[in-house]
Simulated assay, not measured.
Amino acid sequence: MKIAVIGAGPAGSAITRVLMDYKEVQNLVVLDRNGAVLDELKESFSGHPSLSRLRTFRVGMQERSSIITLVNGFDVMISALPYQYNLEMTKIAIETGSHFLDLGGNDKVFEMQRKLDKQAEQNGSCILPNCGLAPGLLNIIAMNGFRQFETVSSIEMMSGGLPVNPHPPLNHHLSFSAEAFLSEHLPPVLAVRDGRPVDLEPMSGLEPITFQSRPEMTALETFYTGGHISTLAYTLQGSVSNLSYKTIRHRGNHSVMQALIELGLADDRIIDIGTSMTYKDFLIRKLRKRIPENLPDIVLAKVIIDGQNGSGGNSKKLRRTYELTYEYHPDDGHSAVMSCTALPTAHIALMLARGEISARPGVHPPEQIVPAESFLDAMKQYGIEISIHDSSA
């Protein structure tokens, strides 16, 4: 099979590392505009038995014709770029007749991708946005759990990539870009209330959180952030009363981020006419400079489903809690949160290329068409721990 990864940053490199271990991937191409990043990627695979199957090309994302030439005839394209590029990469995949995956993260972009459904169907392309951790793996867990109930009243989803040794003042690190980190805190948060999609206030709903599988991690907090539920809100509207997503952080992160935002340091107002620098640009620069990147970390995630099983007098209320954990390991070559982003994405790409996903060509949320049982079994084999606890709701 032939797979192309667009973007050689932390996420693209992590996805490439997963795919390199599969002999069935006979042709693996990575594209990026940064030649130094591509050189670093190839150097990281020095001595790897599959190095001959990896090719890299320095191509800017605006060089559309060059990208089409390089990926034409490939089975799957994976965009590991910031969400702003996902729509254009989707169009390129459709034009070349390739299947396509991305990491999602923006609801408006998905809405534009969904409008390409007919074109994708005509060209034989299966388009799966939102295939990372959240949205992605957590959405598939939530949908799989939903299908195991007679009726479901609520689904709560939470996740976070947390530094093992948090550093003040944010007690956090930059596992993705500073822009991506900040953008979670600003837009309205998509959720479902009373069966209908609604927007919640970002950073609201602050509360403590604990994990049965990690009882030692007690100083954690969780609150609403955007860009994570995405397609699941529309898939389950009318079928659940309440659906929401919260991010997980070390205690104290919320108060610092809220103060920065309330002071106006995330505003788009220009503070330097000569350079057109905004307050947000200034804050992003400071975050890059002052907040550590890719510290040893642990991914914690939770999906809580409240519902009923049985009917009539035999109906019983049930709460099912899924807890997911994945700890940083130096042999991975990247952070735990990058592993939990790359592993679902890469495996769905393999499933598409193998023909293990039976769906008509078109634009599909992964939670609707990815075979959940075999997919989640694969995640466990990769070392992502998923425990299930049932209790009376």
Rank of each mutant, 00 (worst) to 15 (best):
I248T: 00
E221K: 06
G136V: 02
K286D: 15
E385K: 12
I357N: 04
T96A: 11
R285M: 13
A372H: 08
C340R: 01
P188H: 08
L41F: 03
P82M: 08
K23V: 11
A11R: 02
E111P: 06
P129L: 08
L41V: 10
S159R: 02
V189W: 04
H228C: 14
C131G: 09
Q113V: 15
T235F: 07
R249H: 12
P296Y: 08
L186D: 09
Q148A: 08
P82Y: 11
S241Y: 05
A191Y: 02
L182Y: 11
Y328I: 01
M89L: 14
D39Y: 07
P163C: 09
T275W: 10
N123L: 12
I271G: 02
T231W: 02
K302R: 12
G105H: 04
T325Q: 09
D268L: 01
D332I: 07
I127E: 01
Q308H: 12
V192S: 02
R114S: 12
K115G: 12
D32P: 09
I348M: 01
L19K: 05
L182C: 06
I209P: 01
Y279E: 12
F110L: 13
Y328D: 03
K316Y: 09
G252D: 00
D377K: 15
Q113T: 12
G9K: 05
A219C: 13
R354N: 13
Y322L: 14
T151R: 09
Q122V: 13
G195P: 01
I3W: 03
N309G: 04
L220A: 04
R58K: 06
I298Y: 00
F100D: 01
S204A: 14
E156S: 12
D102V: 08
L138V: 03
A219R: 15
I67F: 09
L133F: 09
I68F: 14
L54M: 08
I155N: 00
N139C: 03
S65A: 15
L200C: 10
R55F: 03
D107K: 11
V18A: 04
H254S: 13
E323Q: 10
V25M: 01
E201S: 11
S13R: 08
K2W: 10
T16D: 05
L350A: 08
P366G: 08
S358C: 14
D272S: 11
H228F: 12
G362R: 07
L116E: 04
N294G: 09
K115W: 13
A180N: 13
T235Q: 11
E367K: 03
T210Y: 14
N130D: 10
P344N: 12
E111I: 13
I271E: 04
I141L: 10
L352Y: 01
L182F: 14
T345I: 06
T247S: 14
S159L: 05
A142P: 01
